[in-house]
Design a protein around this nucleic acid. Structure first.
Length: 469
DNA sequence: CAGCACGGCGCG
DNA sequence: ACCGCGCCGTGCTG
């Protein structure tokens, strides 16, 4: 009952305010970005089409589904099916290598992982990757977002004087009961998947801005899920790492690669794989999954995946991770036991996740259920924390509003909460938020905290939405 | 024309 | 075929 109040009811007012008020965007920024992407895509698609041999042109034209506006092109570069025909049937790219089929087995996959493997074989592959990145960003973000923006008066603040200014704002819908783990979901548009990982993607993030006279303030839990994993599993090593304030990815690299205490792990070949292990383990990582993931990492770094990264090598790495963090193995096993025995697993706060899949007659379904059982308490506890934080901060923000300080919640992305604040108070609000995050499990009366490792949060103030500080 | 499954990909 | 989401374009069907 207490959980229903704290986890389900208390976040609602803040969610309502996020949805109702929205977040401001710079429409011209997106329009300019769309124009640029369009320009680059036209060049890339023409280049890609130029790889069609002359004698095959008619065949491609007849099979493509292009509208009259772009019928100067013989094929539709957005179509995976048509690309597969060009690459694998006509050009013979990757012949002699093992090529992944699509799930339904109709054709060879043209997905990123596959293309990364093949991009040294022929320049058309890299061009396709570049085209894909741009097509994704344009259709999902730079074209769509300005369309969704509505003119909206916003409370702003100039030199301490409050007034109302015209802004163009996006009103996403945040769903409280959509996910199986307790996380929130966001739709129309989804504000929880705005790009950040690539340089080009970060230009899209930059189109999200505070109301005039305000700053964006973002606070997130640092290494939230691993800390939760450390607590729930009571693993000695994991707990020690966080209590001593060490970098968990670096420490994991030390463990699995047996690096002497006086040496630093190499970023690409040691720290990055260790990082993927740390995240992946709680997802039920398989050797093949790890190998795939590392393939992408190396390809992104512009290097070929080294010969010695085989499935067996990945399996050993996972085994080494397990022996380094044996408490985590026991913990995951316990969750799997509960899933099989009771059909449910639960978070630190007692939020329940049903996992009927573990009793399926189908092996694949069963195994997926067991992975979900291992992951759900961790991901779900993280979601619980955000719910508690929102419940705790709501009265803080309302109090500030009553005092005449403009502060308004904008969005939440699982372990992160973003608000806008009038400039003078941004730093203050950031620090209040960090406090709220870090004391999420601290009893307000006794000051006691039962968590086995420190809970850390990071905050930043921004004039536009960006990564880092 | 709308609706759907699929392949693909953005985020934590 | 590694957890949790939502959205895009294609290609097909009713």
């Amino acid at each position: 009952m207490e959980n229903v109040r704290n986890l389900d009811l208390l976040p609602q007012p803040m969610l309502q305010r996020m949805m109702q008020y929205g977040i401001a965007i710079d429409r011209d920024h997106f329009r300019e970005l769309s124009r640029r992407l369009d320009e680059e895509m036209r060049i890339l698609e023409a280049e890609i089409c130029s790889y069609i041999p002359p004698e095959k042109l008619q065949e491609f034209i007849s099979r493509s589904n292009l509208s009259s506006e772009d019928d100067y092109l013989p094929m539709n570069v957005d179509s995976g099916a048509q690309l597969a025909r060009l690459f694998f049937d006509v050009m013979g790219i990757g012949s002699g290598r093992e090529l992944k089929q699509t799930k339904s087995g109709n054709r060879i996959s043209t997905g990123k992982k596959q293309l990364e493997q093949l991009k040294r074989g022929n320049p058309v592959v890299q061009k396709t990757l570049d085209y894909r990145e741009r097509a994704k960003l344009k259709s999902t973000y730079t074209d769509a977002l300005p369309q969704l923006a509505r003119e909206h008066l916003a409370r702003t603040c100039w030199c301490g004087l409050k007034h109302w200014d015209t802004t163009y704002r996006i009103h996403s819908e945040f769903l409280s009961t959509r996910t199986d783990t307790g996380r929130f979901a966001s739709k129309n548009p989804n504000l929880q998947n705005i790009p950040v990982r690539t340089e080009l993607g970060r230009l899209i993030r930059a189109g999200f801005i505070p109301s005039p006279g305000c700053r964006l303030v973002g606070v997130d839990f640092s290494q939230e899920e691993m800390r939760i994993g450390a607590h729930l599993s009571r693993d000695r090593n994991l707990i020690r790492i966080f209590n001593e304030g060490l970098d968990p990815h670096e420490e994991t690299a030390r463990i699995v690669f047996k690096i002497p205490a006086d040496q630093k792990p190499d970023k690409l070949s040691q720290r990055d794989p260790a990082r993927h292990l740390n995240f992946g383990i709680f997802y039920g990582l398989t050797p093949m999954g790890l190998q795939d993931q590392l393939g992408v990492t190396y390809a992104t770094a512009g290097t070929e995946l080294p010969e010695w990264i085989t499935e067996e090598w990945c399996a050993e790495l996972i085994a080494d991770w397990y022996s380094g963090y044996s408490g985590v193995v026991d913990y995951i096993d316990q969750q799997r036991y509960r899933a099989r025995r009771y059909g449910i697993v639960w978070t630190m706060m007692g939020r329940v996740r049903r996992v009927p899949e573990v009793r399926s007659v189908h092996r694949w379904i069963r195994e997926a259920g067991l992975r979900q059982a291992g992951n759900a308490p961790i991901q779900g506890t993280g979601a619980d924390w955000m719910r508690l934080v929102m419940g705790k901060l709501e009265p803080v923000f309302l109090e500030l509003l009553n005092l005449g300080v403009w502060v308004w919640p904008l969005l939440t992305i699982h372990d992160e909460l973003m608000v806008e604040v009038e400039e003078l108070y941004a730093e203050y609000v950031r620090d209040r938020m960090i406090d709220a995050f870090e004391s999420v499990l601290t009893d307000e009366d006794t000051g006691e905290c039962v968590f086995r490792v420190p809970i850390k949060a990071e905050g930043k103030m921004m004039d536009y939405w960006k990564k880092g500080n």
